[in-house]
């Protein structure tokens, strides 16, 4: 259905509680959005659940994997049946996902990502791509294509109690409404490296300003070698910086163990973590024994509550992105559920 076609009475009744929050216009934007989700693991499961409930136009799931025993940790669309182990995952879960909301078109594609890369025009059909649990080379390769095609990209992954969201949304215009202060905001004001007020519409009657804000994003490989972090944190913040940021980025250098019982070598992780701290210009002291133990143990593991927080945050940001009301996450969010922190860094 097109953006111009009004919501039906049935749609309004079903989406009542969310339309009351974000309005009809956003619901219409959601209804016209076509999204690709790469890999449906623990966090992918949460994202697809949230976006199907939200009422997107269509979602394509791309995942060539077969069901593994450890998938029964957080992937709740899997039936409780051991005999499916070894079978391709998507055909088994798709019907269960459709049950959530039959208004959303759901397609599945079990082609391996590497084969898709051979014909990247495939990506053109999507307004937005969400990639989960990619390794570094896959992420960089995908980002190269999304950059070339100007398609916004979200990347996310889980490591037990920890997780991340990395965004390259190319550019994004939003029009938030703010109460006007004593001094009116000026158009063409740069708020920071990536954020510019391009337009200000002042409404005297309600004393509000409708701003047009441009958020600009950098390609993901640039995030991996950024020197920006120390400039964004004060001394105290730098000192109490959690090791989850350098360790999550360190884990991009490791492959997920084939045997889920295996752990990541702690000393290799320590060396990589320290190297990354030096590279990012942050104190190496954050790499504590406690964090190294947790990360070597929990790397690449899935845990439902953490998947829920991360998948909820990502899906919410996708809705925010599509609604054009506020700025989306730019460009790295770290979830540390040990410290109950979710900092966002502009790298």
């Amino acid at each position: 259905m097109s953006k111009d076609e009004a919501l039906t009475a049935d749609e309004i009744a079903l989406y009542d509680r969310q339309i009351r929050l974000w309005g009809m216009a956003t619901q219409l934007r959601l209804r016209s959005a076509k999204v690709l989700i790469v890999n449906v693991g623990g966090v992918g499961t949460e994202i697809v659940k949230n976006l199907v409930l939200g009422g997107l136009n269509s979602i394509e799931l791309l995942d060539s994997s077969v069901v593994k025993e450890e998938d029964f940790a957080a992937q709740f669309f899997l039936p409780n049946d051991d005999s499916i182990i070894g079978q391709p995952k998507l055909p088994i879960i798709v019907e269960k996902i459709k049950e959530l909301n039959n208004r959303v078109k759901l397609n599945i594609n079990t082609t391996p990502l590497e084969s898709i890369f051979e014909d990247p025009s495939y990506f053109k059909q999507f307004d937005l791509i969400i990639a989960t649990e990619l390794n570094r080379s896959q992420l960089f390769a995908l980002n190269q294509h999304t950059r070339a095609l100007s398609i916004p990209l979200y990347a996310t992954g889980l490591h037990g109690l920890f997780g991340y969201i990395i965004t390259d949304l190319i550019e994004h215009y939003s029009t938030p409404q703010k109460e006007a202060g004593n001094q009116l905001r000026e158009p063409n004001t740069k708020i920071n490296r990536s954020k510019t007020i391009t337009k200000v519409d002042f409404d005297k009657g309600s004393n509000t300003e409708t701003l047009t804000i441009l958020d600009e994003f950098v390609p993901i490989p640039q995030i991996f070698k950024s020197k920006e972090l120390p400039n964004q944190l004060n001394k105290r913040q730098l000192k109490r910086l959690s090791a989850s940021f350098p360790l999550i980025f360190s884990l991009f250098e490791f492959e997920k163990p084939l045997n889920p019982e295996d752990v990541i070598d702690k000393e290799l992780l320590r060396a990589k973590g320290i190297q990354l701290c030096e590279q990012y210009g942050i104190p190496t002291a954050s790499i504590t024994e406690e964090y190294l133990d947790m990360f070597s143990n929990q790397a690449f593991t899935e845990y439902s509550p953490v998947a829920a927080v991360l998948g909820g945050t990502l899906a919410q940001d996708v809705i925010q992105f599509l609604s054009k009301k506020e700025s989306p996450i730019n460009n790295v969010l770290i979830l540390d559920s040990v410290k109950s922190e979710m900092p966002i860094y502009l790298l």
């Binding site: 509680r17 969310q18 009351r20 929050l21 949460e46 659940k49 949230n50 409930l53 939200g54 109690l161 439902s304 509550p305 953490v306 998947a307 829920a308 927080v309 998948g311 909820g312 945050t313 899906a315 919410q316 809705i319 559920s337 109950s340």
Partner: peptide
Amino acid sequence: IPAIATTNAIISGFSSL
């Protein structure tokens, strides 16, 4: 009161954690 899936997912995640 407006209510959405994502906020509930996040808060429930923290609640159970």
